[in-house]
């Protein structure tokens, strides 16, 4: 039972990271129907920003908890800026182009960003400092829930609640929903669609950065290629929940997290990634609309 609980909570923590990244995919897809292939790389850059900030501040002798907060904030801001820029360079000029064009451009952007970080930093794995300290009162429960897992779960939940509020209640959130429903109509009623798209990319990228910093601190090392796998898995989560649907992304992230956690725990950890990919393939083939998504019929 304890083992089960351990896997359950581990899956929950892992799933919330997937959910954080998946939100970016789903929001962008909801608005411009594009699989932002470079999203995983934004997450990776978020993790690197966390590492750099943490490295500089550690060298300056700052206390751990303040480093965590500052690293998170700077990583979020920088990733948002990256998201904004990526959209302007690789996607905006291709609006209205054939469907494959932005997708290919997105793949190009993903390769570009990976190699840029590899060349500017290093191809090797870099150790990532533990920014989340072990809390005393967690001691008795440490067997099945590390403090960092708890922290990840709590942070993710808070961020997702904040996102929901943002989308539900702010002017920009309403504009986003309107654009997702019907871009032309939104434009006609005066929504600045370009701005909405930019904000969507920035918000999605910021969420990915939170995920990047948290997971890097949890695992303890990063390199330039971590975004690829994380990106595909988060995309799986987004599709699993129903791409375009925000609660769907969260649900999908959790389901994927648990699937991986239990499969690795009870079957074999060698094939952990294979399970994720199989899940992806099966969902797309048998239920492409996902768990919460609506089946879209094509207009003729």
């Amino acid at each position: 039972m304890e083992y089960f609980l351990q896997l359950f909570l581990g899956g929950l923590s892992r799933g919330s990271i997937y959910a954080l990244i998946a939100l970016g995919y789903t929001m962008v897809y909801g608005i411009i129907e594009l699989i932002n292939f470079a999203h995983g790389e934004i997450y990776m850059i978020g993790a690197f920003m966390g590492l750099i900030v943490a490295g500089v501040l550690t060298a300056m002798g700052w206390p751990t908890l303040s480093i965590l907060v500052i690293a998170l904030i700077i990583a979020v801001l920088y990733s948002a800026a990256y998201g904004y820029t990526v959209e302007k360079i690789a996607y905006k000029p291709l609006r209205g182009a054939p469907r494959l064009a932005p997708l290919i451009s997105a793949i190009g952007m993903s390769i570009l960003l990976q190699n840029y970080v590899m060349l500017a930093q290093t191809p090797d794995f870099l150790p990532f400092p533990r920014l989340i300290p072990d809390l005393e009162f967690m001691g008795p429960y440490a067997n099945f829930l590390a403090t960092s897992d708890l922290f990840i779960i709590i942070t993710s939940i808070s961020v997702m609640v904040a996102l929901t509020m943002f989308i539900k209640f702010t002017r920009m959130g309403k504009a986003m929903r309107a654009t997702a429903q019907n871009r032309k109509m939104a434009m006609l009623v005066g929504v600045n669609v370009d701005q909405v798209i930019s904000v969507t990319f920035m918000v999605g990228s910021g969420l990915a950065a939170v995920g990047g910093v948290l997971i890097a601190s949890h695992i303890g090392q990063i390199n330039f290629a971590i975004g690829f796998l994380a990106g595909i898995k988060a995309f799986t989560a987004a599709v699993l929940g129903g791409i375009g649907s925000i609660p769907g992304a969260v649900l999908g992230g959790l389901v994927l997290g648990w699937t991986e956690s239990f499969a690795a725990g009870y079957i074999s950890s060698d094939y952990e990634d294979v399970f994720a990919f199989c899940l992806l393939v099966l969902i797309l083939i048998f239920r492409p609309a996902g768990l919460l998504g609506k089946q879209r019929s094509q207009k003729v």
Binding site: I35, L100, F235, L280, L284, I285, P288
Partner: peptide
């Protein structure tokens, strides 16, 4: 199984298959 999928989904599924083979 995959060819009835729309363009971008097809891309991702084939990507997934490629990864499965390698793994």
């Amino acid at each position: 199984p995959v060819l009835r999928l729309r363009g971008d989904y097809l891309a991702i599924v084939t990507l997934g298959f490629g990864q499965i083979v390698r793994l």
